[in-house]
Write a protein that binds this DNA or RNA. Structure first.
Length: 229
DNA sequence: CCCTGATTCGC
DNA sequence: GCGAATCAGG
């Protein structure tokens, strides 16, 4: 069988993709190859991210390999003389679009790690004081643990929430994991098992996780490679 | 070399 | 539909 892109998987793919994570990163977290991620993303019609490369249109390649004759007439328009250029030619302004890469929300040196509970979990119980977390997705590296420098105020309010403004009246017991927006998508339990569900709490603005899970999700980057298998 | 994402094409 | 292979830029 190829691969079951379940609703959950797809939802996560979307989330991660939107977060601007690299395809390889997403792949690692979803336990698939980057190719799979890219392929799926494409089929899903997810917005393409700035690719480092630009490939000639398929048509061109095909035509070329087919030894066809000039497929593209391409009437080269006359160069529009840059009028009103008194002196310094200067560099033309570039229509800079927001670079998702740089726009990576708030995690320059942080990267969302796989909330994969399941196997793994070598050890290192993140003893967070008196965390009564029933089944918090444990995830930790043998070497890269905690000690993640002081958290620069990333302009994210979060943390000290004096009080909850108001719940948007959304039952957490809702069976349908509403993707994106309204609920923390931190997976609890094993995907595929009946007990599996998402946290569902109100997420931190700009993040797919609630404040608690965001802390778990965003840790120092460096694990790379081989995580799940 | 490593990384990246996109496309192709056999399955 | 899927994703390895391949391509191609940084």
């Amino acid at each position: 069988m190829a691969m079951e892109w379940t609703e959950e998987t797809i939802a996560r793919l979307r989330e991660l993709w939107q977060q601007g994570l690299s395809t390889a990163e997403i792949g690692r977290q979803l336990s698939v190859t980057k190719n799979a991620v890219v392929g799926k993303a494409h089929r899903l019609g997810l917005q393409a991210r700035p690719s480092p490369i630009r490939r000639p249109p398929a048509s061109a390649r095909a035509a070329e390999s087919a030894g066809a004759v000039a497929p593209t007439p391409e009437p080269v328009a006359v160069a529009p003389a840059p009028v009103a250029s008194p002196v310094s030619p200067a560099a033309p302004v570039a229509p800079v679009a927001v670079a998702p890469q740089a726009a990576a929300p708030v995690a320059p040196v942080m990267a969302p790690v796989a909330p994969r509970v399941a196997e793994a979990a070598p050890s290192v119980a993140p003893v967070r004081q008196a965390e009564p977390a029933p089944r918090a997705p444990v995830r930790a590296e043998p070497e890269t643990v905690a000690a993640v420098a002081p958290p620069p105020p990333v302009a994210t309010p979060a943390v000290s929430r004096p009080e909850t403004p108001r719940a948007p009246l959304r039952a957490v017991s809702s069976p349908a994991p509403r993707r994106s927006g309204l609920s923390c998508c931190w997976p609890l339990g094993d995907p595929g098992t009946p007990g599996f569900h998402f946290c569902g709490a109100t997420p931190v603005p700009g993040k797919p996780y609630c404040s608690e899970h965001a802390q778990l999700a965003y840790v120092k980057l460096r694990d790379r490679r081989d995580n799940v298998a």
